[in-house]
């Protein structure tokens, strides 16, 4: 099977890779680009651990083909902090103990960031429904929701 050549941008960096036609973006990120921050919890779009944005749209990277990101721009957890400076969501997740094992954390952070870009002042309910596609088995979500709301408040103040 011949491979497909893809040129794209990942976290602002120009990237080229070859992939199989059937290969998911998640596999490309993890296996070809060594970006293992996005996790595979299910591979079927049901857990959100693989959440990334493609062209600004939140997707499950396990359901997107690597070949589909040709010419688009992909953002993953690895691109969330700017150098030494953590994103407010990242800081609030640590501060509010919003992770136990942390396997869901990259996906939830990417999803929450995408929410706050659309809605800087979400209600608790809006956060809960937005994150309904991101499973966390450890925390019962309580501290995650608090951390997202706290980050939103801080970001509103800063802007």
């Amino acid at each position: 099977m011949s491979k497909i050549h893809v040129t794209t941008t990942v976290n602002g960096d120009p990237v080229e890779f070859l992939c199989e036609a059937s290969e998911s973006l998640l596999d490309v990120l993890r296996d070809r680009l060594s970006l293992t921050g996005s996790k595979e919890g299910c591979g079927t779009g049901d857990c959100g651990a693989c959440s990334v944005t493609v062209g600004g749209r939140l997707v499950c990277s396990c359901l997107v083909l690597g070949a589909e990101v040709e010419g688009r721009s992909v953002e993953t957890i690895e691109g969330m902090a700017e150098g030494e400076t953590l994103h407010p969501l990242q800081r609030m997740f640590i501060k509010h103990a919003a992770l136990q094992c942390g396997i869901c954390t990259p996906g939830i952070l990417v999803a929450a960031k995408s929410l706050l870009e659309r809605n800087p002042d979400p209600t608790e309910e809006e956060v809960r429904y937005w994150l309904a596609g991101n499973l966390c088995r450890c925390t019962g979500y309580d501290k995650i929701i608090r951390a997202v709301l706290a980050a939103a408040a801080e970001m509103r103040e800063a802007s």
């Binding site: 921050g37 957890i77 969330m80 953590l86 640590i94 103990a97």
Partner: peptide, 21 residues
């Protein structure tokens, strides 16, 4: 008290390495 966990940054930046990583 409630200090910050030492592995927090690794886990919010995707740097922490899990089984499949």
């Amino acid at each position: 008290t409630r200090p910050l966990r030492p592995d927090g940054i690794d886990k919010v930046t995707g740097r922490a390495r899990y089984g499949a990583d």
